[in-house]
Nucleic acid binder design. Structure first.
Lengths: 183, 183
DNA sequence: GTCTATAGGATGATAGAC
DNA sequence: GTCTATCATCCTATAGAC
């Protein structure tokens, strides 16, 4: 059965993300990705210039979503309600990006060294500055970071807590909103 | 200048932890560790049977501290004050283990596959069950996990927030205590 | 677009001399 | 305890045929 035209690139992305999230970036070889797809390594190199290029491609949609949210937020006056809305929208973006978040979360050293990873971390950092005043107390600074983190963490906790994804997600969002400065 | 007797094993541990935390487990080769110490790879293999064995050794003190805290906690009646005290003592244990925590945190896939790593994660999981009732609400479940996590996270945030380590640590502890169920 | 074949190198680990 | 030398295996990446 032949692969449908234009499908291969997308299939590489899917399999790569799956493996990167599951067993890590370094431990996942291009040979393994190719084998799962029933092609050779050389075929991968036709679609992506390097291994890192696959990661870059994986981050693209996520980066675009985050940038859109950030530029929207920049146009609004900073109020407690804006902050809550930013967290809600951020949570919505994360929903579709579970494996990417897990990959980012659990492959710090590898991600840090890649351009796309550094960009994503920088975006994450920039969000914290929307959620809390620069001169807020240290505990509030930490709470704001933890708020974003609680959403990321939901993906890890789902495996540990016995409850369905929808419920965990809703609960994580509730916790995240509680962690914002009350002003 | 000759190395002092019995020092080499300890020096290997120090350099390895430094590199594992900084650039990741997989990206750190035994050659690199040996080079930093001015010895050869073969010398490393005299002190440790495998690369994973170095990690096992790194986790040993931490595991002992955690086990002691857990068995102490088991003998106490579960009250809100016990929970707060457990978090305080956990925070104290983490203080001396910054790089190990960072390594654990940022090398999920590698750590997960190693016996010592799995043990450490299991201990972490077990702590959550002391901090919150099994039948507590889902948000409270998440908050309890996030409480422990906030302490871990302090080590990462120190680099990002402009404040001295002592202050960040104290603030992280305050946030952690706030996240416990109020009962 | 996908293949075979291979370059060029690093890696974890071991054997055996000193 | 530390060394030299080596093994077997894996890796990313490329050249060139089909």
């Amino acid at each position: 059965m032949p692969r449908r035209r234009g499908d291969t690139r997308e299939q590489i992305r899917e399999v790569a993300l799956e493996l990167f999230a599951e067993q890590g970036y370094e431990k996942t070889s291009l040979r393994e990705i190719a084998e799962r797809l029933g092609v050779t390594k050389a075929a991968l190199y036709y679609h992506f210039k390097t291994k890192e290029d696959i990661v870059t491609s994986l981050f693209e949609d996520f980066k675009a979503d985050i940038d859109e949210l950030r530029s929207w937020a920049r146009e609004q006056p900073v109020t407690p309600e804006l902050r809550r809305e930013v967290v809600r929208r951020y949570a919505e973006i994360l929903r579709g990006a579970g494996k990417l978040i897990q990959f980012m979360q659990e492959n710090g050293p590898a991600v840090r060294e890649m351009k796309a990873g550094g960009d994503a971390r920088e975006r994450f950092r920039a969000f914290a500055e929307i959620l809390v005043d620069k001169d807020a107390s240290l505990p509030d600074q930490i709470r704001a970071r933890l708020s974003l983190f609680s959403l990321n963490l939901a993906f890890v906790l789902r495996q540990e807590i016995d409850a369905d994804d929808e419920a965990v997600h809703a609960a994580a969002l509730e916790v995240a909103l509680d962690l914002l400065p009350s002003d």
